[in-house]
Design a protein around this nucleic acid. Structure first.
Length: 209
DNA sequence: AAAACGGGGGC
DNA sequence: GCCCCAGTTTT
């Protein structure tokens, strides 16, 4: 992990940390993350702020009109779907969880619009609990390295759980994704800047730069 | 396993 | 125009 930290240094995008810091409460992390699916961070951040300005609690948010939510989170991708999801999500939080966000992954993934990636982000960022967030970047990087051969992000999450240090969850999640975005990116991996190239199965396959 | 959801931004 | 994008749900 120190190697990855070194490799990624200089590529860290402060916007991620900013959003994380602003959105510390589990509820804010949850809503921000639902908005963030297939959407750039700057857009997610702006959309989240507009929505929180309208409603800052599950009760308030569950009472917003769908169209108000849509307007607030536009131009995030899937904004119509997400608006309905968020309203439904908040209603469930109010009705079934006493307006609190559950802090167990099995409960979180039961919520609409919440998959394992989102659930783990809520656990780590919102509750400071253990969790490994596997998005498409992390899934790709792990398999490109050849260290694991997993079919889907959930399998990758379980594989990583056996390997990663069991601490510093937030930083490790951040570094893994940063690494996948900035260095070991999909199209043109920056192999000359990669500190773990000698362990990499991508040599001769996707290697470049 | 693959399609659908959906629109903005880069080129 | 065409392709990409910190996913989740449905078929």
């Amino acid at each position: 992990m120190p190697v990855i930290r070194k490799v990624v240094r200089g590529f860290r995008d402060p916007s991620v940390t900013q959003i994380a810091k602003r959105s510390r409460s589990p509820f804010r992390v949850l809503v921000s993350t639902v908005i963030s699916a297939r959407t750039k961070d700057e857009v997610t951040g702006a959309a989240s702020e507009r929505l929180y300005a309208l409603a800052s609690t599950p009760e308030e948010m569950s009472r917003l009109r769908i169209t108000s939510i849509e307007k607030a989170i536009y131009p995030a991708g899937f904004y119509k779907t997400k608006a309905r999801t968020i309203k439904k999500l908040c209603r469930i939080l109010v009705d079934e969880y006493g307006s609190m966000v559950p802090d167990e992954i099995d409960e979180l993934v039961r919520l609409p619009g919440v998959g394992r990636k989102t659930a783990n982000l809520v656990l780590t960022l919102g509750f400071r609990k253990p969790g490994i967030c596997v998005d498409t970047h992390v899934h790709r990087v792990c398999n490109r390295l050849g260290a694991v051969k997993t079919k889907n992000p959930t399998e990758t999450e379980f594989a990583l759980r056996e390997v990663l240090p069991k601490r510093n969850w937030i930083e490790i999640n951040d570094l893994l994704v940063m690494y996948g975005q900035a260095v070991c990116n999909p199209v043109s991996p920056w192999c000359s800047r990669c500190g773990i190239l000698r362990h990499c199965g991508c040599v001769g396959v996707t290697r470049s730069r």
